[in-house]
Design a protein around this nucleic acid. Structure first.
Lengths: 242, 242
DNA sequence: TAGTGGTCTAGACCACGAG
DNA sequence: TCGTGGTCTAGACCACTAA
């Protein structure tokens, strides 16, 4: 229960934790309406303002969404969000571009040491490894290598290579109940290998932007390692610092 | 004055605008304490809660800083913030590294067309152009080309090359009253020119991470264009997506 | 029209920092 | 001890949505 003793954590913080737990445990699912602020206040024995403060902060963290007149919802990956929240490659005019994906391979294997450490797995664990090529504006631009823990993604290892959707995060949510909530990216400049160069239609050794992403759920469990190599001929990676 | 008529903008929004104007116009300067919430509420004829909501949002935008028991302050660039808020290069263990700078040149020139368009200047305007090399962990790692409008930065064109401090944003604030508040960065992979390669102690044609930054003040006026070329031998660019 | 979130108020008490 | 921000309450009214 909530405690409002002297040295204790503020009520609205405790309520945030409670809501996060409700989502992590699946009691509230992406897209669901949660009870109204007044209802929650009564249930929790606090004022509406306190519930409101908790919800406000979760909305700022993209965990919940408010819609006036309708209610408060658990955030989910419409393709809009999946795409433009996590995909930072734009064309040189700064316009967002819809990528088109071709799966090159999709198989199970044992994780390398770095893979298992980045995913927080025991070394040598079984993982699913997906390779795909993505076109932007009809030009081959990105090569992605995606590594997922076999638990719970194992069944993807049996999937035909062409059965994977363009928007993986939407699929993780719908098929596996896993919502990607935050990610950390590391960017480097590298030289294209011969294979990469030929797939991307570039001279061998051409410079590529390497983006290594670790994607995590709401409770910060890493669930996907994604290494993208991207030509920046006609596109670039864009980010904003506030 | 503030208006609370039917279709009008919420009071706390109007108060935010007012506070931002106070800062942009120099009535409140970085590091200053602003009046207390209760005082502001009385002055503005609203409740403390409304002032509080305005301040809360400005704190979230890094415009103000609250310190319990002391007051609310206009945010400023201590070296901590200047460095780690805008500088995203870390070593391969993910540790922040303090860069050490050497100014290679510092002169006035006419802006190219792209420079003037990115800085929102008339084409051919006079600008100050600074080139410097930065070492991380004693290794030459970054080459920066910084372009600033002569208005108000002109006097930097006359400065001896070695008189520039390591932390430029702190200097912009103290010498010119300009606080960098937000920035947009574009990242690309490029090949090192011969000059770049020799300065960074790399083979010619080595891949470099190019970071083009447009830095802006609180009112979104662009004031600095900075193009950095960075070897990612032992370091990388790190960003987090929430 | 009923129910939701959005804004705003007035006032209580706590936690922290400085003198 | 006093003044600051930090938390929490109780209740008013507005704006929007759906039935």
């Amino acid at each position: 229960m909530l405690s409002n003793a002297k040295g204790s954590i503020p009520l609205y913080m405790q309520i945030k934790e409670l809501f996060v737990a409700n989502i992590s445990d699946g009691r509230w699912s992406p897209g669901d309406v949660i009870p109204s602020e007044i209802q929650l206040a009564q249930d929790l024995g606090v004022s509406q303002g306190t519930v409101r403060k908790a919800i406000t902060e979760l909305v700022e963290n993209n965990v919940l969404t408010r819609r006036q007149g309708r209610g408060t919802f658990v955030a989910f990956h419409d393709s809009e969000r999946a795409l433009f929240h996590f995909f930072h490659i734009v064309d040189n005019k700064g316009h967002k571009v819809l990528p088109e994906s071709t799966t090159l391979s999709c198989r199970r294997k044992r994780a390398t040491r770095t893979e298992s450490s980045k995913l927080g797995l025991a070394s040598g664990s079984s993982v699913v490894c997906i390779e795909r090529m993505r076109k932007l504006d009809d030009q081959p631009t990105l090569l992605e290598t995606i590594t997922l823990p076999s638990e719970p993604f194992g069944e993807l290892g049996n999937v035909g290579a062409c059965d994977l959707p363009n928007m993986l995060y939407e699929m993780y949510e719908q098929k596996f109940g896993i919502t990607i909530h935050n990610a950390e990216e590391q960017l480097r400049a590298v030289s294209a290998s011969e294979r990469e160069a030929s797939l991307l239609d570039l001279p061998a050794g051409a410079p590529l932007l390497e983006i290594e992403r670790i994607a995590r759920t709401l409770d910060n469990t890493p669930v996907e390692l994604r290494v993208s190599r991207c030509t920046t001929r006609n596109h670039h990676y864009r980010t904003t610092i506030f």
